[in-house]
Design a protein around this nucleic acid. Structure first.
Lengths: 260, 260
DNA sequence: CGCTGAGTTGATGACAATCAACTCGGGTGG
DNA sequence: CCACCCGAGTTGATTGTCATCAACTCAGCG
């Protein structure tokens, strides 16, 4: 299974050592004892860099790798034959993406880099082996899955039962707090603002709306002085009002994070 | 932690023995070797019966038990303060419900019986202990979570990007095939029809619609001869057309089931 | 026999999609 | 350096899907 060099760029020379990895404290291998880290290191390929808009994997392929996102933003989405795209989750550094239990079956969603990203790739075959060897790893994965499902449920509540304004507010708050929670890994994070690479089309596809309607709705939110999105930067101007509008619960997004 | 006898009815006398359980082949403990089943049996409380509309647990409570659904239908849903209800998943026999990794935190959704149901209750404290002891169990739980997330993603794609008609068609097909897959456990399952306890309001709450609109949309589907829903029974009259309309993929729902 | 809850149907209105034209800012290449 | 180009975002006009409100039917049941 050779790496597809059209998509991937191997990080020149100095891949991070797992033992020194700053992301590890957030990631799948957090609980792994140092003496076991050689496992990790052994099955890990090099780190890869991916340019914005390139895909990490695509729905329909049987997955060969699972990835720990090391830096950057990733959109995970499904497409329907009639052209629609539904982003079900944005991944941030520390997130583990592309893993599914039945590794033989094709995966049902795609993952696309929204910024330049760095990932650590783990061949799923090896990963499954290690999961058998290290039970602590399985339990960690359970924690992560459990949290993923929680975010997924909340997102579904948004899309199914909230107005466009509420959905947008909710997504802003979720991403704002997720980024702030890993702030030291995210460049340009400030007290009330974060770097924010999403286009209005990305937002629309995550919220089940059109980009045109996101534009109008966003205008309402900014006119009311709740948020500001300019120059790829999101600023929360009135968090209480926004939280109230969106019916946002920080605890669900942050305190339940399996790795904080 | 006493059982709340307002909600639960202890099954008189003859609770099923885990070793003989017909559901076990589908459930969390499938992989567990017989000599370990005493574990299961030991931590399991009695089986409980719950009447329709009663709740198994409610959002906001820290969960004390997780449950294997033994018989009947369950709706898992969230409510938003302004009255909306979003059913994110229907549970069928064999499904494992109410488990979350961080057992100290309040759960973020509720579970309600749609029919009379029987469940096997496992105290989460004990469950976490057993998960540490039996790695095979952790891996099984990973499989189940992985599948749950898959269904959740598909559901989100429906709600976010499909028309009312497509959503309804998709849900019918999903439930039809899930029920048929465990047909021997579901009374009244036939070649092209299943027992179907959902009201139009349940459907609406699962699809992000109103019951009024479900009524109209369902009429369209029946007028076109695709399905029939009468006397609490769902009949699929034209599966190819329905599958095409809904963009339904049986493989995702069935072949990927972790326990079949 | 009337009560009740679920479902149906019609009329109306709100929210979001669609179509289209236009602006704006950031590259790129001459 | 400027002109041009391009993609993203904005705005307006219109349409369409679905929500809302309300009245009514109907089957099941005490």
């Amino acid at each position: 299974m050779a790496i597809n060099y059209d998509n991937f760029i191997v990080k020149p020379g100095e891949s991070t050592q797992c033992a020194q990895c700053v992301v590890r404290k957030l990631a799948l291998f957090q609980g792994v004892k140092l003496e076991n880290l050689e496992w990790t290191q052994a099955i890990r390929q090099e780190q890869f860099i991916l340019k914005p808009k390139r895909r990490l994997f695509e729905e329909g392929e049987p997955p060969r790798y699972a990835y720990t996102l090391f830096s950057g933003w990733v959109a995970q989405y499904q497409t329907s034959p009639d052209g629609g795209r539904m982003i079900h989750q944005f991944a941030l550094p520390g997130d583990f993406i592309g893993f599914q239990a039945k590794s033989g079956h094709p995966i049902d969603y795609s993952a696309q880099a929204l910024t330049e990203i760095t990932v650590c790739a783990f061949p799923v075959k090896e990963l499954n082996k290690v999961l058998k060897e290290l039970p602590e790893l399985s339990n960690r994965l359970i924690d992560m899955h459990s949290h993923t499902i929680k975010l997924c449920r909340q997102h579904m509540l948004s899309v199914g039962r909230k107005s466009a304004k509420q959905r947008l507010a909710y997504l802003f708050l979720e991403l704002f707090h997720r980024v702030k929670a890993i702030g030291d890994l995210m460049p340009g994070t400030e007290e009330d603002s974060i770097a924010f690479p999403l286009s209005q089309e990305d937002l629309a596809d995550a919220l089940g709306l059109t980009s045109v309607h996101v534009s109008r709705t966003l205008r309402e939110l900014t006119d009311e002085g709740l948020v500001s999105v300019r120059h790829r930067r999101l600023t929360i101007l009135n968090e209480p009002a926004l939280t109230d509008l969106a019916q946002f619960d920080k605890a669900i997004v942050i305190q339940d994070h399996p790795l904080l």
